[in-house]
Amino acid sequence: MKLEVHKLDAFYGRAQILFGVTLKVAAGEALALLGRNGAGKSTMLRAILGLVAARRGRVVLDGRDISGMATGRIVRRGLGWVPEDRRIFTDLSVEENLEIGRQPPRAGVPHWTVERLFSLFPNLAEVRRRPAGQISGGEQQMLTISRTLMGNPCVIMLDEPSEGLAPLIVERMAVAVTEMKREGLGVLLAEQNLTFSRAVSDRATIIEKGRIRFEGTLECLLADEAVARAYLAV
């Protein structure tokens, strides 16, 4: 297993958001974390990454315990995070943005270079010297994913990569996620968009009110109408 989360609790202030969440992501596998807005998906990713200070439980990355570590250290151990709102550095050029994400190559993990990322997302190559604030929303989404890949992660967590994107760009994102899986990355995908999740993920976990409600393959999930209606409202 590349990423193992065991009985994770997380809090904002005095409010508990996650209740003993457990999940696993293997190499070359994409796990879709599904659920309504406010179910705790983003908090889940942020807690795994150590951005939620008040948390308890065990998180193991590539065989090493990272629970309680500071975010920077967790990231340097090989966990990548693509935030929901992209958070690109608008004043920096596209290339400088990628530079910020760069980490030294890691043994046994795919190594990404600027040129390789440009071939994955050709649109970015065309705007490489432009300030990132002046590229389109779709290009920004490609940039934020590329920037995280520059850290050569062994597991990447994507928070709603299809949100607010035109259908054409969403298709491009699916291609990119498939490529990451082929390279052996573990992918943890927080999504509301079922079509996109179905296109890229192998297994799914449904989270509701901070608790895991279902685990299994996507087909299994969609076949189980009761589950789908109760937690996803499809």
């Binding site: 309504r36 807005n37 949100e163 607010g164 509301q192 996803l232 409202a233 499809v234």
Partner: peptide
Amino acid sequence: TAGMAPAE
């Protein structure tokens, strides 16, 4: 409806 579940 941004950020809402389909039924909502």
